[in-house]
């Protein structure tokens, strides 16, 4: 009972800076500029269905790519000696100590028409590739920035799997690949689910990556919302409505995914 008091500062923080803003967004989303109740903000949104589609599509591709790259890496990492694990973990974290925008700007100068990659290819007489301002560049930026969030939760789950379980599986006749499919993978599922959440959620709402690497051709939900608040088409009511819909869709996605996960180990969100 008394220890609950230690949480009060955070509860206050959360009330002020999480709950209150959400309420404000809800109010904005359901009102017109004169303050009256309306659903127009939601019905107007169908103009932007393609942006919704693109955002969720690219975030999905980025998440799957992160999973395909991150799982084997996490698996290998968990089976290294403690020294190698330390070094590799640091290498994975290292880019995260650099400013996010800076990292993304770096990709810009790599991918540009006259960027490093194209200049290098030019040495071999290869015509410059069109990389910047494409969906590919946006996915690349997402994968690059969010990969550590996939690797770390999976790694931390795999590294904790009791080695005697693997021996028990072998003992019962499982060859190495069966040990993986029947024991290691099911036991690492909770890490996979948190990894997916931690990559998908920021990827679906990003605006910096798409702005810098996608140009104005690959507008994502984040950009769309930003435009409603800061851009020329100032309309915080529509912006709030889009933000709200996005939040609900993400929550539904996470909820559905959690149903597939194990019952006792839930992903961070729920």
């Amino acid at each position: 009972m008394k220890s609950r008091a230690f949480a009060y500062p955070y509860v206050l923080w959360m009330a002020l800076f999480v709950v209150a803003p959400i309420i404000i967004i809800v109010v904005y989303a359901f009102s017109a500029s004169d303050g009256s109740f309306t659903l127009d903000n939601f019905s107007n949104m169908e103009l932007y269905l393609s942006v919704f589609g693109r955002s969720f599509g690219l975030a999905l591709i980025a998440t799957i790519t992160c999973l395909l790259l991150g799982y084997p890496l996490a698996y290998a990492l968990a089976h290294e000696g403690p020294r190698a694990q330390g070094i590799m973990l640091m290498l994975i974290m290292l880019p995260m100590w650099m400013n996010f925008l800076l990292r993304t700007y770096a990709w810009m100068s790599l991918l540009e028409k006259t960027g490093l990659i194209n200049r290098f290819l030019g040495l071999f007489g290869i015509a410059p590739l069109n990389m910047i301002n494409t969906p590919f560049a946006v996915v690349l930026g997402m994968v690059y920035n969010y990969l550590p969030f996939m690797v770390l939760p999976i790694y931390s789950v795999i590294v904790k799997i009791d080695k005697s379980l693997l021996e028990a599986a072998q003992d019962l006749g499982a060859k190495p690949s069966t040990v993986f499919t029947r024991v290691i993978f099911p036991l690492s599922l909770s890490g996979v689910l948190s990894g997916i959440t931690m990559v998908f959620v920021p990827a679906v709402s990003t605006f910096a990556i798409s702005k810098l690497l996608g140009g104005n051709k690959t507008m994502l939900l984040g950009d769309l919302i930003e435009m409603q608040f800061l851009g020329g088409s100032y309309n915080p009511h529509l912006g709030s409505a889009i933000a709200l819909v996005m939040m609900v869709v993400v929550m539904v996605c996470m909820f559905v995914m959690n149903r597939f996960g194990s019952d006792d180990e839930q992903v961070v969100m729920f």
């Binding site: 009791d162 005697s164 379980l165 021996e167 028990a168 599986a169 072998q170 003992d171 019962l172 006749g173 499982a174 060859k175 069966t178 024991v183 099911p186 036991l187 194990s262």
Partner: peptide
Amino acid sequence: IPPHKRQVNTVFQRYALFPH
């Protein structure tokens, strides 16, 4: 011969039951 091909089974010290 690796363990999975031996007709021998083990009861491990701390049981090693599959938690999932």
